[in-house]
Design a protein around this nucleic acid. Structure first.
Lengths: 233, 233
DNA sequence: CGGGATCCAGTTCGATACTG
DNA sequence: CAGTATCGAACTGGATCCCG
């Protein structure tokens, strides 16, 4: 990718031609995390133009990392499924993430907050097993966002499916979480904790008491949250 | 690194901004393999312009992956040394290389042969311990190359330092290896063996009998050579 | 929903030459 | 040895519109 390759026979270079062009690793992360539909992938990389996403997917298909198959079930369309080669990228994505968690400075990271993206990521990490076996609705309100983009709803259905939306779905809300976007992002990244930020009053949680007490169980964090940050401040 | 970042707080994205711009991973590979001087790095990435190499090194310094220090010992200049963060990239580089070895098709790989680069890589992988404790000179002749770029000399000094040159150093040659460039590259990559290619008559070795017999011991291969290729033909 | 096509501005890259 | 300087060519990516 990026025609005009490195012209090196070394396996690192050959693989880098496939994996290390702009956006590619992020798309692979989305695939590894389980997204298969174009529009789902797009939600995971909102700053990437659809044209470019399409091109990258084609490149990955050519490289044997994904397979484009007619979408099962709903509405036609296509699915992008990882091939065996693609599945073997998971450890690489993880290793890169761990390295980032350990060594990339956090300050610039926390410039890149985005409520839609955070909700989308949280949706994936919710620990459904830690929630009651009935529909649970949590409303997140980002106090520092403009009126229109302030609230999001996390809906966990009784059957375990998790949805996110940015318009009030009308269901009764079980728990209200209110904070600023950077605080919740920092929590999700493991840079601080629900407990600490509650003490701080930067995070307020009201509603169902059981849900409130178990929040650190059902609110899954980034898969890299456990790793200690080592980058110099 | 490609200004205009991904604007994602995910650690994979943050790390990819540092690592996944064009050429960067290859430069990191060179650093991990032990090169520290600008010109040594340049030999490892001959198709990269010095201007771009310089920029990438600056970016890596800014990211905390390398440290630029006044060169010790000889002639001044600078050295680029991996920081602790940089050293932790080694498993990532290895993982990428293994993946490339397993899953990237070999046909295009073998288009990218380059005698200087192969010699430079072989220099790093020579198993000095398997050679006699005295100066050993091996002449490689690539029968398919134009007269001027046909022969290279691998010189292992008694003290264990390994050098490569493309002009006859004048020393007595202990072993003559004659083959085409693709064959030796394929051997180095583990796609075939010295034995098989000798049987084939694509590889001819003459000279010191002991050196000849032990060639597969002292001629180190790519660090990924052991991994089986799985990519579909 | 799931993309493809087009356009254009901005960047980046590579080649070569050159310097302290 | 260790890079800069320069310049044209190539590529990228965002926006927008379109289509089935």
């Amino acid at each position: 990718m990026t025609e005009g390759s490195y012209k090196q026979f070394c396996p690192v270079a050959m693989a880098s031609e496939v994996l290390c062009s702009r956006w590619t690793m992020i798309v692979v992360r989305e695939l590894v995390c389980g997204s298969t539909r174009f529009n789902d992938l797009k939600r995971g990389v909102p700053r990437m133009s659809p044209a470019l996403l399409s091109k990258r997917l084609k490149d990955l298909e050519l490289a044997g990392v994904v397979q484009r198959v007619a979408g099962g079930g709903k509405g036609g369309g296509y699915e992008y499924r990882l091939t065996p080669a693609g599945r073997e990228l998971e450890p690489i994505v993880k290793a890169i993430g761990f390295w980032g968690q350990r060594w990339v400075e956090t300050a610039p990271t926390l410039q890149n907050v985005d409520p839609e993206l955070l909700m989308w990521d949280m949706r994936r990490s919710v620990n459904v097993a830690a929630l009651p076996r009935q529909r649970t609705v949590v409303q997140f309100t980002y106090t520092d966002r403009p009126e229109k983009k302030r609230s999001y709803w996390l809906i966990v259905e009784a059957n375990g499916t998790v949805d996110v939306c940015s318009i009030d779905p009308g269901f009764e809300v079980d728990l209200y979480v209110s904070t600023d976007l950077r605080t919740l992002t920092a929590i999700w990244l493991g840079l601080t904790t629900i407990h600490a930020e509650t003490e701080n009053d930067r995070l307020t949680v009201v509603g169902d008491t059981a849900l409130e007490r178990t929040m650190s169980n059902w609110l899954g964090l980034s898969s890299f949250a456990a790793e200690r940050k080592l980058a110099p401040a």
